[in-house]
């Protein structure tokens, strides 16, 4: 085992390297004449935020939420609906107007994601185990069917967001510009998770995952800390959903479907639950696998399953475990 200082320095170096790589990526993509890579990595970063938010409850808190896509979808619809009302100049709820402003629409997406998590979490967190999994799933599916039935917002077909939100004078249509906006937010969100993980709150959360009986016995009310983590996670998913609406310029109930929740869970577990960068590796890994396999065969999902199982079985800690293995850090 190397002394903590050395590990800390090495971790800082690795993070710095990752950041430089991500900053240089769009330019390298242009140079190598694969400009589509920028858009692909944008997608990975958005999913990385969503997976990181799920990791907060699933990995750090040990709450197996199977309905996380609900908050992701709500973030997406927040941007989509605000945009539609701005475009048609129709008042929303009889008073508020829509908006195309990134700096308004995104905070709304984050807050609504958090509010939905507050309501769903307040009820679901009264249960544990399989019951908790089923209740979170049920709530998410309820929201899915609610949005399917909202014909005014496109119902099943979803809602087209004709233009990306406006942010200062930036040309958001430009893939590179939008990439850097997403990268900045992703970096900020991962920094936020990093601080949380080591904070007093994070210590409580990690203790709850391992032994909630012990946590209660030292006088900490477990429920409210779980709920706070759930809300923070809902806000992160709202952020990711709002970014997705901007990226794809389209939202649909599929964003909330249980398969999307499952996909986020796979990313977290594939990357290494409860690790800081696991969700990033997991999102990048899953999207890469999907892209490579679907270019190679039509029945790519048939091959995806076994590959995922192998990685999860053989590398404890998922892709984070694999990265640690290669960098010679054996813990």
């Amino acid at each position: 085992m190397s002394p903590p200082q050395a590990t800390g320095a090495r971790a800082a170096l690795a993070i710095g390297g990752l950041l430089v790589f991500l900053l240089a990526l769009p330019f390298a993509a242009d140079l190598l004449d694969v400009p589509a890579t920028t858009s692909l990595v944008t997608r990975m970063l958005i999913y990385a935020i969503a997976a990181a938010s799920l990791n907060l409850v699933l990995g750090f808190g040990g709450m197996i939420s199977f309905g996380h896509a609900a908050f992701y979808g709500i973030g997406g619809y927040a941007v989509g609906i605000l945009f539609q009302h701005a475009r048609l100049s129709e008042p929303l709820f009889g008073m508020m107007l829509g908006t195309e402003q990134f700096l308004i629409a995104m905070p709304v997406a984050i807050v609504l994601g958090g509010l939905a998590a507050l309501v769903i979490g307040a009820l679901a967190l009264r249960t544990t185990g399989v019951q908790f999994i089923m209740i979170t799933l049920a709530f998410a599916q309820m929201l899915y069917f609610l949005f399917v039935s909202l014909k005014y917002y496109g119902g099943d077909d979803g809602l087209v967001v004709r233009r990306r939100n406006v942010l200062f004078g930036l040309d958001m249509r430009d893939a590179k510009t939008f990439y850097f906006v997403v990268l900045a937010l992703a970096a900020a969100y991962f920094a936020f998770i990093w601080r949380i993980a080591g904070s007093r709150f994070g210590m409580v959360l990690g203790a709850i995952r391992q032994n909630d009986r012990r946590v209660a016995a030292i006088g900490i009310g477990v429920y409210r800390y779980k709920l706070a983590a759930f809300v923070l996670a809902g806000m992160g998913a709202g952020l990711a959903g709002g970014l997705w609406a901007n990226y794809a310029r389209f939202v649909s109930p599929d964003m909330m479907h249980w398969t999307k929740s499952g996909e986020l869970m796979v990313m977290v577990i594939l990357g290494g639950a409860g690790t800081l960068f696991g969700p990033l590796f997991g999102a990048a890994g899953l999207i890469t696998l999907e892209t490579v396999l679907s270019a190679w065969t039509e029945r790519w999902q048939f091959f995806l399953g076994p590959i995922l199982i192998l990685i999860i079985l053989f590398f404890r800690g998922g892709l984070s475990g694999l990265v640690a293995l290669f960098s010679g850090r054996n813990r």
């Binding site: 080591g198 904070s199 007093r200 994070g202 210590m203 006088g219």
Partner: peptide
């Protein structure tokens, strides 16, 4: 960390999200 968590619980709520608890 176990004992520090008990000290922390005794010191009031733990809704502190930023500072590094292990270095406190």
């Amino acid at each position: 960390e176990h004992v520090a968590l008990a000290v922390q619980a005794n010191a009031g709520h733990s809704f502190r999200f930023i500072g590094d608890a292990r270095a406190d």
